[in-house]
Design a protein around this nucleic acid. Sequence first.
DNA 1: CAACCTGCTTGCGCGAGCGCAAAGACACTG
DNA 2: CAGTGTCTTTGCGCTCGCGCAAGCAGGTTG
Lengths: 231, 231
Amino acid sequence: MAAIDRSLVRALPMFEKLSDAELDRMLARATLRRVPIGQAVFEQGQKATQFFLLLHGRLKVTQVTADGQQIIVRVVHPGDIFGFAKALMRDDYPGTPTAAAESLVLCWPTEVWGLFVEQNPHLAVNAMQTIGQRLQEAHTRIREMATEEVERRVAHAVLRLIDQAGRKEGEGIRIDFPISRQDIAEMTGTTLHTVSRILSAWEAKGLVEGGRQKLLVRDAAGLATLAEGES
Amino acid sequence: MAAIDRSLVRALPMFEKLSDAELDRMLARATLRRVPIGQAVFEQGQKATQFFLLLHGRLKVTQVTADGQQIIVRVVHPGDIFGFAKALMRDDYPGTPTAAAESLVLCWPTEVWGLFVEQNPHLAVNAMQTIGQRLQEAHTRIREMATEEVERRVAHAVLRLIDQAGRKEGEGIRIDFPISRQDIAEMTGTTLHTVSRILSAWEAKGLVEGGRQKLLVRDAAGLATLAEGES
DNA sequence: CAACCTGCTTGCGCGAGCGCAAAGACACTG
DNA sequence: CAGTGTCTTTGCGCTCGCGCAAGCAGGTTG
């Protein structure tokens, strides 16, 4: 197996406190994996044998309910770690991360997590913080789902996406990976139909510009107003 | 300040790996606080200066939205730690824990968290696991809110409550702290009216028995069937 | 270039559950 | 024990958004 170059991960805040030597030692235990669009890194319910770091691309983490309904729990962005179920004392993965765009992933066997943390407590602190943020985010979503009507939820979801994955593009901000109406529906707890209607309405108002698996936000401020619900 | 007796916390899984000496050292830094019913341990948005362990009683953690709506994020049970925002690198508390029953709380200044973790890495592992479980639970709730209709959500919430705070009582299982229809509504993202109607219907079917701030589940299995949604 | 597939749009009707409103029940206070 | 405040029940109308169904567009394949 070829050694993985430090430069791939050097810039990540996760590792900024590590020395080059420590980093190399970590990378020596890792494998690199390409995940083509539409493919899953692992499946919900599978035994957790590895944990991961997304280097490039984008993953949607889904969960399916007993009756086959699907929801998107979160989106994994480059630099995020994911699938560290073992650190949380689970032994199976709770969701399925699927590549929304061609992705590149670093994989470590779960056993090394303990070693890494021992050698470098910073990593544990960092991981803890990461989970904390996710918990926060989850609570925010719960609150939104409990109190807000669909249009505002969709607005919030879109704003979150342009915040996490926005790329400036001429007249506005583009969501930088392929995302369908169905996806947005699964993030906001509604149906593809309703999302389509809402986006059409927004397009008529000049707030956004749609397209097949594409979304361009022309007026983020306007959307934010909508999200805050001044009817 | 009087020393706090080890026996109060010895039995908690959180501390089972600690020696008596270590435990005493921790307790030496703690203060004990009684929280009367209806009172908050701290307020949402307040600077995080302490973290806590619930010894006795029951707390409901609420968040309020910008427009004044309230939701219950979770319930804190005896033995749970809470308010360790600093460990998650926040410096304010994200919610308000209010005593649903007369409660007893151990309080530590946030600074000692680092010390404790250094001395006893087990604590960090434990904390991580705790947050992991909460994240899991949060995702479960998101999934429920996104895919299930109100009656099933309420069923799930009640089942969770009897699981976490159920006490066997003659004909069924009682929820062991005062809980109102309003509370259940705020846990499931609906209104007090709808909850009341649902519980009335269940009572007619012999599934539960209601009362002012009380709930007794007579047929947990029946409720579970309902929650799984075999209409 | 035609055929096809997948994702998007739109119309229509219906039903769950919310909002409002009013009244009843229970517990605590003086 | 009457009075008061909080919690709960129940009725009624209305609206949001879902479900179904049909048609459309754009990109990909033979």
